[in-house]
Design a protein around this nucleic acid. Structure first.
Lengths: 346, 346
DNA sequence: CAAAAAATTGGGACCGTTCCCATGAAAAAT
DNA sequence: ATTTTTCATGGGAACGGTCCCAATTTTTTG
């Protein structure tokens, strides 16, 4: 089957010169007569020549394309990280291909194979909540494809990554709840498979300890981030003999779903129960009452991850993280206080 | 530079057979001895063979990959369409590459060239609000790459598309406002470059006409969808000598931004001003008061667009839309009534 | 003006895969 | 046993670009 695309050979034939010369003219090689170059560029334009990146990447073993894999994109967190990545990567002359896992481990493996089969030069990753096996990541590394992780970084792997101080941020969030007088603070935690979920829980525990509040296991539940379940867990909390007077939720969608349950039960936020989320999703500022949450610099996370990937790509000598420690960038968070923890003064 | 990837030639050498046989074994060609096939598959697995899609697509002129181009993805509309597209496409054995334009025409053109240079088999598109020139789309068609549009469909092009009845949906939304007794209904419209924006405005106008409400030009403003501007326009509406008692906004982010302005001014929703949005963004149900809005079947839109693209890809004879009418699929909308138009009964 | 240097161009290998065609081997039919 | 058919394999072209090397032309230099 003959392709409808114009090739450099078509151009060469028309101008009665060799394809080598056409290639040189198009790529800006210095050794081409100005007159020849002009003729080539003109014809290429009228014939709507469109370089074949497949042929190019195939022959050069480099595609100037990077992938970004995110577990989901229904909250604003990952989309805005992606925008940051695109900013930096496009400025550096790279294309960015986005893959979305729907929180499925199988899709993650499939997407990784897809990106590798298209020979991307590097990949930025945040893994799914299901991911417990990391072979697909080490495979990429063995292939010489650098990875940079963000947000969800596997402890098992020594890889460059961009994170926030989840422990500290959680600690401060819970301390804020304690400062406004809450003592029975519940925590809807994420699955233990996620490092940041474990860190946030630890921050919660240590904040309690610092303020001499005994840890009450009844008030901590880990769940799998499928939002529908929040209803069950939240009802359970509210039906306790002495229900909590505050909730620290693993993320904003969880916090918002919890708010719905609280409001449906006729309780007041924050008077009866104060609520804190995590990540400052766009909707956190829109719900009623406004949700107190830990803001993450999402755009900056994306830009930093991209910068780190560029560093890997431009390294004259490939960094070998089996022998040296991989770099980490930690970015600051900020507690955004809204009405879900502090009643508005009228 | 030698690549780190295993090739079929490596496998062939190891097994002392020809690369043709290896290829046949890997692709499942019938004419391979069971014993040989087993040996090849085993070695391929231990050597972590990863087919080179670049070489394949390059040589076969088909990549089994489709692109999807969306103008932005900070609202939940486009992400959930994308999920629908991925569902269908992955089931059909296609890969999906996502491009995001940030509402920039230049990025759109660049992304189109990127997808074409990677020789995707087809593209699903919703264009940016800036797009007024459609050459990059006709270029794809000339190259034999089928396009399917959704949501934002250029009138100038005869292309397969998936839409909702924007006119009718807007008509019903405005009629709903009239039914609850509103007469001074303002409309924050989108830019005229978008067909659906024009259709929604027409629906607004015709609903007024049907109910003998004279059209008041002071109450209609077109804007460019940069959310910060809503503040200006909304203030303008509220400062009119006789301010509107209802607002029909082009989309949910606009409506929600408008609600902020109304609330900041101390007015009550819906008592002083009722508000309706469009698309049923996730946040529409979260804001206070809940936003009445027109729900679109986003997942289904994505799935239908994918189905239509598959139809194009599988057509034995390529459809030539310069001579015949392109198919349209119209999906139903549903007006979701929340507290922003009807006060909750206590 | 001849020789050397520089600029421009052409030729062809290479990248990894598929697929067509030819060849050889085994199985089936006479 | 010989011919025919089927099955299994190998060889090599093709895809579109880049790049190295050689050949040719132009320019510079002594």
């Amino acid at each position: 089957m003959k392709s409808k695309y114009t090739t450099i050979i078509d151009i060469a034939k028309q101008l009665n010169i060799s394809k080598s010369t056409v290639s040189r003219a198009l790529t800006g090689h210095p050794n081409v007569k100005e007159h020849t170059r002009k003729a080539v560029l003109e014809l290429a334009s009228t014939m709507e020549y469109q370089r074949n990146s497949l042929a190019l990447g195939f022959s050069k073993h480099t595609t100037h394309t990077v992938g970004i894999m995110v577990p989901e994109f229904m909250s604003t967190y990952f989309p805005s990280v992606i925008v940051g990545v695109q900013d930096v990567m496009q400025a550096a002359g790279y294309n960015v291909v986005i893959c979305q896992q729907n929180e499925s481990y199988e899709t993650e493996v499939a997407n990784m194979k897809l990106l590798l089969s298209y020979r991307v030069d590097g990949i930025i990753v945040s893994h799914t909540k299901e991911t417990r096996n990391f072979d697909h990541f080490t495979l990429a590394q063995r292939r010489g494809v650098p990875l940079v992780f963000f947000n969800r970084v596997p402890e098992e792997l020594n890889v460059p990554n961009v994170i926030v101080n989840d422990y500290e941020a959680a600690f401060q969030a819970v301390e804020h709840l304690i400062r406004i007088g809450r003592r029975r603070i519940a925590h809807l935690a994420g699955p233990d498979s996620l490092v940041n979920s474990r860190l946030r829980r630890q921050g919660y525990l240590d904040a309690l300890k610092k303020h001499d509040i005994p840890y009450n296991p009844d008030l901590v539940l880990s769940y799998d981030l499928t939002i529908e379940k929040v209803k069950i867990y939240m009802k359970h909390f509210l039906d306790l003999a002495t229900p909590p007077d505050a909730l620290f939720a693993i993320n904003d969608p969880t916090a918002i779903a919890a708010m719905e349950v609280v409001k449906a039960k006729g309780l007041r936020i924050p008077q009866d129960i104060a609520i804190v989320g995590f990540s400052n999703d766009l909707s956190a500022g829109l719900v009623y009452p406004g949700l107190t949450t830990v803001a993450q610099p999402t755009g900056e996370i994306g830009r930093m991850a991209a910068e780190m990937l560029l560093q890997e790509l431009n390294a004259k000598v490939k960094n070998d993280y089996s022998i040296k420690k991989a770099p980490t960038t930690q970015l600051p968070t900020k507690l955004i206080i809204r009405e879900s923890t502090v009643a508005k003064k009228k």
